[in-house]
Design a protein around this nucleic acid. Structure first.
Length: 521
RNA sequence: GGCAGUGUAGCUCAGCUGGUUAGAGCGUGGCACUCAUAAUGCCAAGGUCGGUGGUUCGAGCCCACUCACUGCUACCA
């Protein structure tokens, strides 16, 4: 209690809302939410941010196609992303939209600071552009047809275009970035991404085009309103906008620098190269870590509209239950790696881990308490080595979780927790309290107390991952809401015999296929 | 093409600085039990660790070559 509360600022990437949220967005949000919850339960002062990135050509084009103005489209889809957060019970403290006035102010302010530092200059951006692909291509990627005409890999014709653009002197930051990666080995995670970024930067950096004159749906460049900022400055700046920038007296500025940016593996480079360089240029502190998670596939197939395997995360969370939905993705997929999901796999996890192992463990033990111990926490008599071992492994979960969290190994935390769940089922079966009831009631009480106490600790440490069920479990154990931090996962806070307990109830229903459920009502 | 990584039981993965019968979970088969959500526990089958050749008293863990797959190789959020 003598130490200052540590702050923890976690962000997701901001989503591009030219469509509705899909499972990938939900995955990133759920994982980030679990980390945020973990840190809060571990006593940190957490600021958890998510939001939408609403500018750019694609938004403008999509809006036009739908007969809307860009801001109308943005309003509509940002609402859908917010709704997803709500449906997933995300605990983000703020939801930033890049079309908000505060973000215009922040983006223009960081632009001016980079400019004042001599890192922004006006020049010409040129290259082979394919209108059909909406993209520039490197000379090496092109094929040459008759008459010297060039074509993109897609077969679309390309033309040489030159465009006036502001540039950021990214090349000047190569050495500083390499020094950053060297001095902070965990700056980029997982390690495979770090290696890629390092080798990318080692190959040399070019200056970066950071404005556009070809569209207007963006934040005006200060002092030259013919230009709007291109995605880099606009999008990345959201993280400091939400912290109050440029007002360094703002209440939330204390949270900057961010503890971690949780992002998809496709945008690691932007966060690990461009963003820190921008911040260096602006004289601002750098985020501590950047972590790129993997992509999800449906049975190994990429999700795509044409394959018809794009699933609605809100519908899925309702189908399986929010906790089960979260649990599956966080447990099944090593965080940072790609992962595949299927209905069968989700149901398997739900039934095996949640309903059978944990849910049934709570049910079988607490119903015995209810029937044989007057629905009170039973007395705890002398403990044997079996109890000591089991309890010790439970009390070790919080510390072990912290260790895994250092590398955002969410799956490993869950693995450890369920190891204890399994041990507890084995303990329960080996002790057979239903037999002890007749032969040695005191011993039965000790077994039931021990099981309940282990469940208390499991409930505490499982809260970030299955918040609803963990809360229910702690309710069943009559754990006061102000004793549910990780700091309480210790022997000193153990269940007090005699405490009145509510009637047991199921934590997780088994998932039964609707087809086989009955007469199809 | 260059750089990096992966390849271990049907499936998903662990395997520390090389050292007794290569592990876990799920799935499968059998048994037990009845406290419990047809739940749980126990036992078993099943891999010689992508392939070849080396180093070593000894290699899944080192080296070489080889096959397959994946990622990165900048203006795509």
């Amino acid at each position: 209690m003598t130490h200052v509360t540590e702050r923890f600022f976690i962000t997701t990437a901001i989503s591009y809302p030219n469509g509705v949220p899909h499972l990938g967005h939900a995955y990133e949000l759920m994982a980030s939410d679990a980390i945020a919850r973990f840190m809060r339960l571990d006593g940190r002062d957490v600021f958890f941010l998510t939001g939408t990135d609403e500018h750019g050509l694609k938004m403008a084009q999509t809006a036009e196609r739908e007969g809307l103005t860009p801001i109308q489209l943005a309003d509509r889809n940002a609402a859908a992303f917010r709704a997803m957060g709500k449906a997933l019970d995300s605990t983000n403290d703020d939801f930033i939209r890049t079309t908000e006035p505060r973000h215009y102010a922040a983006s223009q302010a960081i632009w001016r600071r980079m400019e004042a530092n001599g890192d922004i200059y006006l020049s010409k951006y040129s290259g082979w552009y394919s209108v059909r692909d909406e993209a520039f291509f490197d000379e090496k990627e092109l094929t040459t047809g008759e008459g010297g005409k060039r074509f993109a890999p897609s077969g679309a014709p390309v033309e040489w275009v030159e465009e006036e653009s502001y540039f950021f002197r990214l090349s000047a930051y190569q050495d500083k970035l390499l020094a950053l990666y060297a001095s902070q080995p965990d700056y980029i995670g997982p390690e495979s991404r770090r290696n890629e970024v390092v080798s990318f930067v080692e190959r040399g950096l070019e200056d970066l085009s950071i404005s556009r004159k070809t569209f207007t749906w963006g934040i005006p460049v200060p002092g030259d309103e013919k230009h709007v900022m291109y995605v880099w400055v606009d999008a990345l700046t959201n993280y400091i906008t939400a912290a109050g920038f440029p007002d360094e007296q703002a209440p939330r500025w204390k949270y900057w620098p961010a503890s971690v940016h949780i992002i998809g593996k496709d945008i690691v480079r932007f966060h690990a190269v461009i963003w820190p360089a921008m911040l260096m240029s602006a004289g601002l502190p750098l985020p501590k870590r950047v972590f790129g998670h993997g992509f999800l596939t449906n049975r190994g197939e990429k999700m795509s509209k044409s394959l018809g395997n794009v699933l609605d995360p809100i519908a899925m969370s309702q189908q399986y239950g929010l906790d089960a939905f979260r649990y599956f993705f966080l447990r099944e997929i090593p965080f940072g790696a790609d992962g595949s999901y299927s209905h069968e796999a989700i149901v398997g996890r739900l039934n095996a881990d949640l309903a059978n192992d944990l849910g049934n463990l709570a049910q079988r033990s607490l119903s015995m308490v209810n029937k044989n111990c007057e629905a009170k926490v039973p007395p705890r008599h002398a403990l044997t080595g079996d109890e000591d071992t089991l309890l010790a492994s439970a009390y070790a979960l919080a510390a072990g979780g912290r260790r895994h969290m250092d590398s955002f190994a969410l799956h490993a935390i869950l693995n450890d927790i369920w190891k204890v769940v399994g041990d507890t089922n084995r303990y329960f079966a080996a002790q057979a309290p239903w037999a002890l009831r007749k032969t040695d009631p005191a011993r039965m009480e000790t077994v039931l107390w021990t099981t309940a106490e282990v469940l208390r600790v499991i409930g505490l440490v499982a809260q970030p991952f299955i918040p609803i069920a963990a809360g229910k479990l702690l309710d069943l154990l009559a754990v006061p809401v102000d004793r549910r931090m990780f700091a309480h996962a210790v022997p000193d806070q153990a269940l007090v015999p005699g405490t009145v307990l509510p009637a047991p109830m199921a934590l997780f229903p088994r998932y039964v296929e609707p087809e086989t459920a009955g007469e199809g009502a």
